[in-house]
């Protein structure tokens, strides 16, 4: 047992939020734990470790992925984006701003997962309908908001994104 517990650590190199990080991970180390504990990127939250709640969602090569269902060693060479990247320059990202405008968060624990899931949606479909938004977000749970503020936030972010796209450059 002590062998399985400590042996077989591997060097992993990941690109997280535009920076490359090298670390040692056991094969069983979850990506969520690697991000949170080894890289100290604690904005990614863990609500179940059962793949259900979506709080741990990060973007891997642009796609939403549950970091609690992913091993760090599987991510060798991947491009990972966590919530910390959204406001890298210190200002809120338009999606974050929209969440604030619509009271899309209360305790804020589920929020990073929702933000990244919403970002992936808007990149794929810049003007989703309310039903499409609800469908796309249905894999993330929030116990505080009843979702109304979250759905409104994504609608607002989409509308703002559209305004910007329509503006002459």
């Amino acid at each position: 047992m002590s062998e399985t517990a400590t042996a077989g650590r591997r060097l992993v190199e990941l690109n997280v939020n535009g920076m490359s990080h090298v670390g040692l991970a056991e094969p069983r180390t979850l990506l969520s734990d690697f991000l949170r504990h080894d890289l100290e990127l604690t904005g990614t939250h863990v609500g179940c470790e059962q793949g259900v709640c979506g709080a741990c969602t990060v973007l891997v090569d642009g796609e939403p992925v549950r970091s609690c269902l992913t091993f760090a060693v599987q991510m060798e060479g991947a491009r990972i984006e966590t919530v910390e990247a959204l406001s890298a320059d210190g200002a809120l990202h338009p999606i974050q701003e929209a969440f604030r405008n619509t009271h899309g968060l209360q305790c804020g624990f589920c929020t990073p997962g929702f933000l990244l899931t919403a970002k992936a949606l808007l990149e794929e479909n810049p003007s989703p309908s309310e039903a499409e938004i609800r469908e796309h977000l249905s894999g993330n749970v929030c116990r505080c908001t009843g979702y109304q503020g979250i759905v409104d936030a994504v609608l607002e972010a989409a509308a703002n994104g559209k305004d910007q796209a329509d503006e002459p450059r």
């Binding site: 604690t42 959204l86 809120l92 804020g108 929020t111």
Partner: peptide, 12 residues
């Protein structure tokens, strides 16, 4: 309180 929560900078 929202900005720190939105930015992933709150400490749970």
């Amino acid at each position: 309180e929202d900005p720190r929560l939105l930015m992933g900078r709150a400490r749970f």
